[in-house]
Every structure is written in structure tokens, then in C-alpha cells.
Design a protein around this nucleic acid. Structure first.
Lengths: 171, 171
DNA sequence: AATCTATAGTTCCATAAAAGAACTGTCAAA
DNA sequence: TTTGACAGTTCTTTTATGGAACTATAGATT
């Protein structure tokens, strides 16, 4: 597959993966949320090759997830800062962390704990239904084609999801 | 980086990425949630090369996300089914879809809409704080090292998160 | 009996992407 | 004048992926 093609699929998952679907991008974003902003710091924290880092940063800027801003002239230096679009990736990263906290911890326990500033408590990130507030489970969701669905193509996700009721009784 | 090393990092995100951090795995899992279970169907839906598909399925089975179960003998045939560990990836996929629905839709609108069986309504997946129920935002979270933190290593995520209060004022 | 089809892979080779190291250019500070 | 920080780029080697063809098993078809 040419990975650029993902952008054009009628599937929000595929389109998102076009942005963050490679091994390094999510780790780079983790660093961004840790307030890392500069090339050298990304590089030394992650051990990514400089070539790839330059490439991925360009991609994230191109997609509007990061913004490249000068922080000094003479010589010109830029830093990479999360845009609102980038900040909105937070639930994805937290969902990834949460799964790791549950399924990939070793005997020593969780590497990090999270405290909610607004309520002061240590919490778990939970994904809920916006309408009834109940936690979401794969088997409790029906899927329907939306206005942007490519139902004409029987292989499109929308067409298949419709036929089979996405994840309604997976596994 | 040797990607196997991700498993051993004291970071739940890195550990999760060891499982689903490559381009194909998430798409394969999407298919699983669409009730795809067989090699040929994965292959023809995704256009992944057979070699890589075999490889990725093996990896997902090894990590306990999928289970390889015989559905006939003579000749032996197996299908790949989500385990509970695999079903628990649902919030990650929904978070990815949600971001794409907000930031990557074209003029035609969303490809898919989601209906919650238990309450009957079309919904958005929202990530909230388990303690106060409020939607989570990157800037409202403090991070603390947990029991499994590798604070001794100043480059570890835990050590850096502690110093800089993860994402507390990102961007 | 011979052929076709479905299924789940494996093998082989060409190409693309990533790793690893060294190099460039600009400027400030020692 | 030399060193060091910074943000890359260039180069070569290694690894991963794409694409196509091949294998194996067995039931169904001619």
C-alpha cells in the first residue's frame, strides 16, 4: 500500500493513521505532551535517527498537528509546538496508555499515575457514551453509514460495517 | 531502535506500541472488530501482502490480542478471534476514529455514525476522568511516578514526566 | 480420474524505508 | 581560534515491505 492513500479512504481510522500510524509519530507526540519542543531533545530522548526525525516533524507540521515556530534569530531556530489539533490527540494517547497500564504492566506496577487538576483525584481515563454516560464496550455499539460513507464500494469500511454491524458481536 | 525493546520500557505507551505500533496492526484490528476472522478475508479487505499478514497475525496472537482457533479439520483451518485483551483495545480505536471524525473529514461528512445499543442513541465517544466524570483535557492532568517508574534513569518517561508535569501546560 | 476451487500459508526477488554515522552551516561563548 | 549548541543533510548499510508465484490439503465438479 502507498501510505499516502490512507488519507483518502472513507474511514476516519485510516485517515488518522495517515497522520500518526507509524512507529515514531506517537512517540514523538508523547514527547510533545512532555513539553519537548526542540529537535535535539526529541532526538536524544527517543534515539530516533536525525533523518527520520526531520521527516516526521515535517509530516506532523504538514498535517497541522505541530506548528514550527521561531524562538530565536541569528541563527534561526525553530521549535515544534502542539496545535489544538495536536492537543486533541490526547485521548488517543491516554487510551493507549490505559490499555498498557491494564495489560502490559510488569510485577512492579504502573510507571505513571495521573491526577486530574480540576478535581484533584488520581483517576483512570474512561471512554463513555456522550449520550448516556456509560462506559463503552465493543459489543454494545451499532454502526451506520454516515453522509461521507462510500457505500457504493462494497469493500469500503462503511459498506462492510453496515452489513455486519461493526463490533456488535465481535469475538 | 530495535522495536522489541519497546516492550521493556517503563512506559505503558511504549509497551502498547510494541503490540499495535506499526502501520498494519491497527487496520487488522479494525477488521477484527468488523468480525473478519480469516486469513483470506483480511488479505483481500486490506490489500496487505500475505507475508506481512501472516507475520502480524502471529504477533497479535503472541501478545494475546487474538486467539487462533481451529474451525475445521481436514484440512486444518484456523480463524483469528479477539480475546478480552483484544476487545479492550476498543477505546483506542474509537479514540482514533473520533479524532479523524473531527479533524480529517472531507466536505461530505463522517463515514460512519455510532449508535449505543444500551441507550439507543447516536453518540460520540468521550474520554472522561473516572473520578469526577468531566471530559479530559491535556492541560488538566498532572503526572506522578507510579510503583513501576524507572525514576533512577533520568531519561525515562517517568523521570521526565515528574520533572515537567506531563502535558500540564503543553503547547 | 482429472481438474477446479478455497484456504492458509511460504518462498523468492526487487524495491523502499530505516539505522547509523559522519558532515554542514550558523552563531555565541570561552 | 577553538569549542560547543543547534538543526538539520548526506552517505552507506541493513532491514522491512511489496508483489508475484508456489505449496499443501481436501472437498466439489466434470
Amino acid at each position: 500500500m502507498k501510505w499516502d492513500a490512507l488519507e483518502d479512504e472513507a474511514c476516519s481510522m485510516a485517515r488518522t493513521l495517515a497522520v500518526i500510524g507509524d512507529r515514531w509519530s506517537v512517540l514523538i507526540l508523547r514527547e510533545c505532551f512532555l513539553r519537548v519542543r526542540r529537535f535535539e531533545e526529541f532526538q536524544s530522548n527517543l534515539g530516533i535517527t536525525r533523518h527520520l526525525l526531520a521527516d516526521r516533524l515535517k509530516k506532523l507540521v504538514r498535517f497541522g498537528v505541530l506548528r514550527r515556530t521561531p524562538y530565536q534569530t541569528n541563527p534561526k531556530r525553530h521549535e515544534y509546538i502542539l496545535t489544538q489539533k495536536g492537543l486533541d490527540l490526547y485521548p488517543i494517547l491516554m487510551a493507549i496508555v490505559r490499555w498498557g497500564d491494564i495489560h502490559m504492566v510488569d510485577e512492579r506496577g504502573r510507571p505513571l499515575l495521573y491526577q486530574h487538576k480540576t478535581c484533584g483525584k488520581f483517576f483512570e481515563p474512561v471512554m463513555i457514551c456522550s449520550e448516556c454516560g456509560e462506559p463503552l464496550h465493543a459489543k454494545e455499539v451499532h454502526t451506520h453509514p454516515g453522509p461521507g460513507a462510500a457505500v457504493a464500494d462494497p469493500k469500503s469500511v462503511a459498506a462492510r460495517a453496515t452489513r455486519r454491524k461493526v463490533s456488535s458481536d465481535a469475538a
